[in-house]
Structure formats: C-alpha cells, structure tokens
Design a protein around this nucleic acid. Structure first.
Lengths: 204, 204
DNA sequence: CATAACTCGTACTCCTATGTACGACTTCTA
DNA sequence: TAGAAGTCGTACATAGGAGTACGAGTTATG
C-alpha cells in the first residue's frame, strides 16, 4: 500500500509538498528552530500553502524526519554487508557518517516537537540494520556479547552523533572524523581480550 | 580572588541567590525549557527578586551550569586517580556517572541559550582531569595513541551522555548503565591489539 | 472551458516568555 | 532605629511564532 493513502492530489500540489518537505529537511538541518515561515520561504511557497498540507509544525517535522530517514535507508541498502562483520561494519559506518552528520540538527528539532516514542519508531528500520549486523558478528565470535545489544546499537549512534558534533564545531576535520568513528566503533564492538579485562591470567 | 567581586550583599540577598541558583539547577535539569517564572516559584522567590540578581535568562542558566560544574569538581576531586590508569578511570567514571546523568537536561538548556564557546570554557576544568588521566595512561602504554586526545576525551563524554539518555528513557537500568559505561570506555581507550586491527600479521 | 483544486497575501487571534517600570512594603545592619 | 538594601506584586511593553479566517486569484485536469 502507498505511504499516504489520501485523496488524489493535483500534480502541482504534489510537487509543492515535495518542495516543502525537502526545504524543511534542509532548513531544520541547519537550524532546528527554523520557523514554519522560514521553511515556506525556503521552499518558495506561501506559508498558507504549507499549512494546506501540514496542519501543524509537528506534522511537518515528522515528514522531514521521515524523508531523511527514507533517503538514508536508500543509501544504506546499497551497502554490501556480506563477508567479515568488522569490515562490513566499517563500510556501513563510512556510508552512514555523512548522513548522520547532516541530520543531527533535524533530529534535535524532532526531539523538541515530536513525542519521544514517535522518533524511535521512525528510527526502527535503520536501527534494525545495525542490530542485525552486530548479531551476526556475535554469532561469528567477532563481536562482544557481554553487553545488551540494544546498548551496542545505541552507542554506535552516540559515537556517530558525537563525531558529527565535533566536526560541526571544527574540532575534528571531516576526513579525520570518519576515520575516528570507525576505529572507535571497532574497539567498542570487538570481543574484548582477556588480557585487557583481567590482567594476571597469561592465557593468550 | 573571590568568584564574584561585586559590592557587599546583604545576608538575605545572598541566601536568595543561592536558593535561586539551586532551584535553577533542579528545574533546568528536569526541563531544559523551564521558564524564569517556574524557577522563581521553585526557589520560593518573586520573579522580580530573581531579576534583581540575574538580568537575563542566559545569566541565570550560566550560573546554574557553573554551580553544577562546581559541585561536580568537588565530588570528582575526591576520587583517587593513582595506580593503574584503567582502574583509576573506572573509579572516575563511577563517580561521574550520576553527575552527568543528572545534568544532561541542564546542559541542553545551556546549549540553547549560551554561546557555544562559553560552555566549553566552563567545562574546561573537568575535561582537563580526564585528559590528564588519559595522557598518563598513554605514557604507561595502557591507552591507545592512535587518535587525537581531544576526541578520546570527547567520546568519553558522549558515551556518558548516551548512557544517561538510555537510562532516562528506561532502556537501561541505572546499575546496568554504570557497568556498561565503564566497559565501553575501557574498550575505547585500551591500546588496540594488533590481531584485531590488522589480521594477517602474526606479530604478537 | 468549466470547475474543482490549489495558491497565497493580508490580517487577524492566541499564547508564551522575556524583560522593564513603578512603588509600596519588609528586613537587614550599622 | 534610621536608612540603605532587598523583596516582590501589578502592570506593561515587546517580540515571535503558531494557527485561523477570508477571499481573490491562478492552474490543473477531465
């Protein structure tokens, strides 16, 4: 079934909606507090037109977030996740990096206007992708199993967000950020070596 | 020299300021958008009194943040950082955890009202403590040196914040959060094993 | 080309929060 | 206990954004 079932819309309306959504994505991604007016202007559309399609700010923010997520899904679904789990993860991270970096502000906006649960729901699909990969790595013995998998998934997110933030504030160059993210995440997920966790045993 | 040099204040004024600051800390820590009015009420003080001491919202938020940081410094300075760096870090994290968890919302408030640089400046002291510990661990060969130290410091922060968030949203029990934070940070900081980073070489 | 769908400007109302002005009252403190 | 310092209520000025109402004009579409 189609995403929005609604009554058949006229072609120009459809086009304007698309414009608004993408303007919302852009505007909110650079300023999470962008007003509806700002967004309408950025879309080259009257504020009233916008209200014709999105009754409230929340509705608009949600559409923008959903759109960003959809675009992300599209990009990520192209990533080859076969082979060594560590390497697959690295590839996934390399592709995720810029997407996440671009959308941090948008996420902030969503957190400010959408009910908490709603955001999680929208994030479910991308999160599942990471979760499955981690699970596979665990089965293969490459990834650790001593922490809740939900945490492992989340922490990847937080590291990504953090790197994006450091990058935004010029404390980390873009290239450096990408490198650092993968190295950090690798370390987090890797099965810990005995020697590191309890020194004393000389097993390895 | 004393923190605030200003003209000598009357005892009751001093007391009210303290009340307001601590009310601000509490209110902003549970709702980063708490209004000045809310805070005044929480402090059991008239809004006008509050304005007598803090001319703008930003001034108040800054005072609240500074106070939280000061309290944190106090608690953290009691932590024994001698001995094995990994263990010292664990102790530091155990003590930091609740402090950070309590203040995430406050931090959010600050990010919304204070100029970005101001926050970093206030954070300088606690950040330095972590940085020094990491540096020592590096000297001892226990901590990795393949990433910028500024990133290592930041990522510890992000992990802490993340765990706090997971805890707030009931996805991680408090006890679990503390455990998970230390395990995660240990893995991030530990000198990576060759075998993990590039498989193939059989050096170790 | 008729008409339903859509656009969008102007002009409101509402709301919430910040910050100011005034001034009467209370409480320290010397 | 006088007067300086501080409290704090009421009222107001301001500002910005959200959402509504109206209605004239424009455009897609069958």
């Amino acid at each position: 079934m189609p995403a929005t079932v609604g009554p058949r819309r006229r072609a120009d309306a459809e086009r304007n909606i698309a414009r608004v959504v993408s303007a919302a994505r852009e505007s909110l991604s650079s300023d999470p507090n962008a007003s509806i007016d700002d967004i309408a202007k950025a879309a080259g559309v009257g504020r009233m037109t916008l209200y014709g399609h999105f009754r409230t700010r929340a509705e608009l923010v949600e559409a923008a977030l959903a759109d960003a997520l959809r675009a992300g899904e599209e990009a990520l679904s192209a990533v080859d996740l076969s082979g060594d789990a560590q390497d697959a993860l690295t590839r996934l991270l390399d592709s995720s990096w810029s997407l996440v970096a671009e959308s941090t502000a948008l996420l902030t906006a969503a957190q400010g206007t959408l009910p908490a649960g709603r955001i999680r729901k929208l994030h479910a699909a991308p999160a599942r992708r990471v979760e499955e990969l981690i699970r596979r790595g665990q089965d293969e013995g490459v990834f650790r199993t001593d922490m809740p998998i939900a945490w492992l998934v989340s922490v990847v997110h937080y590291v990504l967000q953090g790197a994006a933030e450091e990058n935004r504030t010029k404390r980390l160059k873009t290239a450096e950020a990408a490198r650092v993210v993968t190295a950090t995440v690798r370390s987090i997920l890797a099965t810990p070596h005995r020697a590191l966790e309890d020194r004393g045993s000389t097993i390895l």
